[in-house]
Amino acid sequence: MEQGNKAKIRRLSSEYMEKQALLDEQRKRRRKGLLRRLTVFGFFLAIFMLFAGVTLFQQHASIQNQQQQNQQLEDELTTMQQEEQRMTQEIEWLHDPEYIAELARRDYFLTKPGETLFQLPRSGTNSD
């Protein structure tokens, strides 16, 4: 019985209803356009973020390498400065006649007149 009543109901077409249908259709088109624009914008934003991330990662790696090289060069500089100090001290000692005489005795087994040279075994060469 209810189906028969529904079939008998007729839609009234009015200017208001047509206007509302047009507004609904416009809203749907605008919403579709908005979704398309947001999708394209999101896609470009994702590409930009990916590019920025890769660039930042490469820069971070480059900075790490440069810091590591800088640390190595600073260590090398410290070593060279110590070597320079040692050599400067060696130069000062080489201007001292007593030091030169000590080197001649030790390395070339030279002696002063009337001096006897005794060679003792070195303590680091034990075969124990």
Rank of each mutant, 00 (worst) to 15 (best):
L12M: 14
L22K: 12
R106N: 13
D75P: 00
A61Y: 02
M80K: 13
Q66C: 00
F51T: 10
R86Y: 02
Q59I: 03
D24C: 01
V40F: 11
E25T: 09
N126L: 08
L94E: 07
A7H: 07
T125S: 06
Q119A: 08
L35A: 13
F48P: 00
D107A: 07
V40Y: 09
L103I: 03
L110I: 13
R27M: 05
H95K: 15
M17L: 15
Q64T: 11
I91V: 11
E76L: 14
E92Y: 01
K19N: 12
F43H: 14
K6M: 06
K6L: 13
T111M: 04
L94T: 03
E76K: 14
T55Y: 12
L103Y: 00
S14D: 07
S13Y: 08
N5F: 11
P121G: 03
G4D: 09
I63N: 08
L73Y: 13
E2G: 05
R122M: 06
Q20V: 11
Q81I: 07
T79C: 01
L34K: 04
E15W: 05
F57I: 02
G42L: 15
E83L: 14
E2W: 03
T78F: 11
F51L: 13
T125V: 08
Q82S: 14
F57S: 03
H95P: 00
E2M: 05
R106F: 12
E102Y: 04
L56K: 01
Q3G: 02
S127R: 14
M49G: 03
L45N: 15
L23M: 06
G33A: 12
G124E: 10
R105W: 05
Q67K: 12
G53W: 03
Q119R: 12
L73C: 01
Q81W: 03
S127F: 10
K6N: 07
Q72E: 14
F51D: 02
G33P: 00
E98S: 07
F44E: 13
G124S: 07
T125A: 06
V40A: 14
Q119T: 11
Q71H: 01
H95I: 01
Q119C: 06
E84A: 14
Q89T: 03
L12H: 12
R86S: 07
